[in-house]
Design a binder for these strands. Structure first.
Lengths: 188, 188
DNA sequence: TTTGTATTGTACCGATCAGTACAACTGGCG
DNA sequence: CGCCAGTTGTACTGATCGGTACAATACAAA
């Protein structure tokens, strides 16, 4: 039996590996080892090599957040969209046992390779959340700070819950952040 | 002219490199390139190679936090120690342009190599801060949550301010975290 | 100055890195 | 069936990886 992939099948597999090993830690041999996909296929789908693989993974992640989180925050009912955001984030990061690829890339020199994408991912997240807060009746000044606090808080919870190996801590922190955001909407 | 080092001189130089490049991204040749220290010296000071270098760096970082932050939180005047913590954190991380080595190691598979050290660093930070809050008159239940929130918030601010390349965002977030902690002390 | 120890530069090792070349295979379509 | 574009395994390259060996150097003590 022989498996035949197409590019779209490969990207999520790569994403998981980049997430766990980081950009530098991800080697072609470890990709092959974990997925069974050989160099032939990898360079067929991603002629630009490792860098193109990482770029494709980043674009895929970005697209998911755009559709599942940012877009609803901009246009759907703001309270419902914010509730959905918290639920989606909890699921997506598997209660903290899955890392944010973009956040991880931001920390080391990998950032230099992808800095526009990384920056954009967070800028759009914060801005979409800010808009939702304003639409929910939050004061303009408070909205930006609250949005920054929420997005920053999620990243911190990921780092800390992973360091402590404690999923419960992630859930607890996200609940606290959600409560605080809800208080902001009410003008707290 | 020829520079002669001793081990204690080398550790801080290595720390900066591990911080910027991550564990996997740090190679012996890049260490030599950035510091001028050759393999001969490196393996003389750290016979265990790269892993021992990283362990030494982690121990050094841990020691600094222990002396400069945790110990005052446990024994000095709690309000003064908390104020000093915020000031020290701001300086140490250079307004967000310097990354937390321990947090960075926690995100990728490097965690597996050093998981006890990584966990301990954060556990002791949170516990020391919790004690200070209790001593400052905060309720036991609120103290743990507030301490977790502060430490987690710092890590998030590091990720986000680096992703956005925005030192001001780091300062703003730390100020907000500090205010919130102060409110907790007053029983907010 | 001589001696002994600490430190360092250099040459080298096998393993692994990212990337290339290309022949062999696969599956859909006629 | 035969064709063919898309996909894949394998063998290879030169560079770099972490690590070792050891002779040369620097320096403090006598």
């Amino acid at each position: 039996m022989k498996t035949v992939y197409e590019r779209a099948d490969v990207v999520p597999l790569l994403a998981e590996i980049f997430r766990e090993l980081g950009y530098e830690g991800t080697t072609l041999s470890r990709i092959t080892e974990r997925t069974g996909i050989g160099k032939g296929s990898l360079y067929h789908f991603f002629p630009g090599g490792k860098e193109e693989m990482a770029a494709a993974v980043l674009a895929d992640v970005d697209g998911w957040f755009e559709r599942a989180i940012y877009e609803p925050l901009r246009h759907d009912d703001p309270r419902a969209a914010i509730d959905a955001m918290w639920a989606n984030v909890m699921d997506y990061f598997r209660s903290g046992s899955r890392v944010c690829l973009v956040g991880a890339f931001a920390l080391d020199e990998t950032r230099q390779r992808f800095s526009p994408v990384i920056r954009d991912y967070f800028v759009r997240w914060i801005e979409a959340l800010r808009q939702a807060l304003v639409r929910a009746g939050c004061a303009e000044d408070d909205a930006l700070a609250a949005a920054e606090e929420a997005v920053s808080g999620i990243q911190g919870a990921l780092v800390l819950s992973r360091a402590l190996d404690d999923k419960e801590m992630f859930r607890r922190t996200l609940d606290r952040l959600a409560d605080r955001l809800a208080a902001t909407k009410r003008g707290g």
